[in-house]
Amino acid sequence: MRDPAFYDSFAAMLHGGDIVAVAAFAGGGLTGFPVYRNSVVRGAIEVLGDNYPAVRAMSGESNFAALARAYWTAHPPRDGVMARYGSGFADFIAAENPPGMPDILPDIARLDRVWSEAHLAAEAEILSAGVLAGADPERLAELTIRLHPSVRLLHAKRAVHASWAAARFEARMVPAGPDTGETVLVWRPSHEVRHRALEPAEAALLDPLAAGIPLGLAAERAGCGIEVFIRLLKDGVFARD
C-alpha cells in the first residue's frame, strides 16, 4: 500500500496548508508540525542564499528571504543535490521584477549561477602555451580549440561584473556600469574559480571558438590579432583536447 493519504496531507501541510488533515495521523500534540514546515522552508531559503550570495547581499536578508520563499513555492527542489537548486532563479527574478530591487538583479543571479557551474564543472587538462609553441601558423589557424569545461560566458546589457564581485565577495554595493554591454568570463583553470570582464576583442574571439569555429576564421571574424588568443591561452581558458 502506498499510503498516499499520509504523505499527501503531510506534504500539503509543508506547503502551507492547515494541519487538520495531517492531524488525523497524530497520536499526540500538534505543535511539532510547524517545526517541519519551518525547517523545510528555512532550509530552502538558506540553500538558495548559499547558491546566490551576491543576490542575497544586494537584496538584503529579509527581501531575499521573501524572494526565496516565493521561488520555493513556485519551484521547490527536485532532487537532493542542493548545489543544483535554483537553476531558474535568475529568470524568476526577471519575471517577478520585485519592487525596490536593482534592475541588474537577474544578471547578478546569472553570475552567481555560472560561478557555481564553473566551481563544480568537470576537470580537464588546461591547454598550455608551451603545447602550441613552434606550431606551424597555418596549422594553428585550422585548429578548433576546445574551451575548458568550466568556462562560462555571460553577456549582460549593463556592466555588472564589478557590482557582482563587490556584492558577492565583499558584501559591498557598487553601482552598475554603463548600458554599453559587457561580457563576463567565469572559469576554473585550477582549483579556484576566476572571473573577469572581457575586452570586446576577447569576447568576440571566444564566442566563435566556443561554437567550434577554427582559430584562424574565429580571429578573422573577431577582427583581432594573435595577442588576444595568447592572453586567453595564458589565462587557462582552453582545454587540451
Binding site: Y7, F10, A11, L14, Y36, S39, V40, G43, A44, V47, P76, P77, R78, D79, G80, M82
Partner: peptide
Amino acid sequence: RYDGIYYGDLL
C-alpha cells in the same frame, strides 16, 4: 521526497 519534490528535511 514525495511527488517529485525534495523537501530537504528528514520527515
